[in-house]
């Protein structure tokens, strides 16, 4: 166990380098996710009063769901509440950029759509906004991933990704999920 001063220093530097590589690797992954996959915390700060959310213009019950505006932009407005999403099923177009806007009238919820960059908390008092493009057709679950109370485990929404020929807005530009 001959440990010269030099050897000790070398060992320390080697381990230091290993830790450095680990930290750099993890940071690299985060940066890659942020730049290439657009996965990052929402940078958008927009406040909304949770006490009067259902009395508000935008998040009133009838305005929820997916809507195509006159200029062709697609916006889905979804309320996360104890213990369901409204609408329970969100229709979105395939391969077309859309904006998802979430709000909560009660407690902190969260949601995640697997295989996409949609992963956000829904904090009462704020609008959570996510830009996304869905590239896989079909139906995906959208579970609440932030413990929101005793019914949390049943809080499961759905997302239907519809190809262009099935994504048909009605006269008001609204699109609903296809019935099974």
């Amino acid at each position: 166990m001959a440990s010269s001063h030099q050897e000790i220093l070398r060992t320390e530097l080697r381990w230091g380098a290993v830790m450095g590589v680990l930290v750099a690797g993890i940071l690299g992954l985060i940066i890659y996710a942020a730049l290439a996959l657009h996965i990052s915390p929402p940078s958008n700060v927009e406040r909304i009063d949770p006490k009067t959310l259902q009395l508000s213009d935008e998040f009133t019950e009838q305005n929820l769901g997916t809507q195509v505006s006159g200029d062709g932009r697609v916006t889905a407005r979804i309320v996360a509440t104890q213990y369901a999403f409204l609408p329970p099923c969100v229709a979105v177009p395939l391969n077309r950029p859309i904006t998802l806007r979430f709000a909560s009238p009660d407690v902190i919820h969260g949601l995640l759509i697997a295989g996409t960059n949609v992963n956000t908390m829904v904090v009462p008092g704020y609008v959570s906004q996510v830009h996304a493009t869905f590239t896989q057709p079909g139906e995906t679950p959208m579970p609440c991933h932030e413990f929101c109370g005793l019914g949390h485990s049943a809080m499961l929404g759905r997302v239907q990704v519809l190809p262009a020929d099935q994504f048909k807005p009605d006269a008001q530009g609204r699109v609903a999920c296809a019935k099974h």
Binding site: S43, T52, D57, E58, T60, E61, S69, Q129
Partner: peptide
Amino acid sequence: TPIARQPSSEAAATPVSQVS
């Protein structure tokens, strides 16, 4: 913020209950 102003929704509130 917000980064991109949303097309402000033209919808008028139609609440199912007036209680807040």
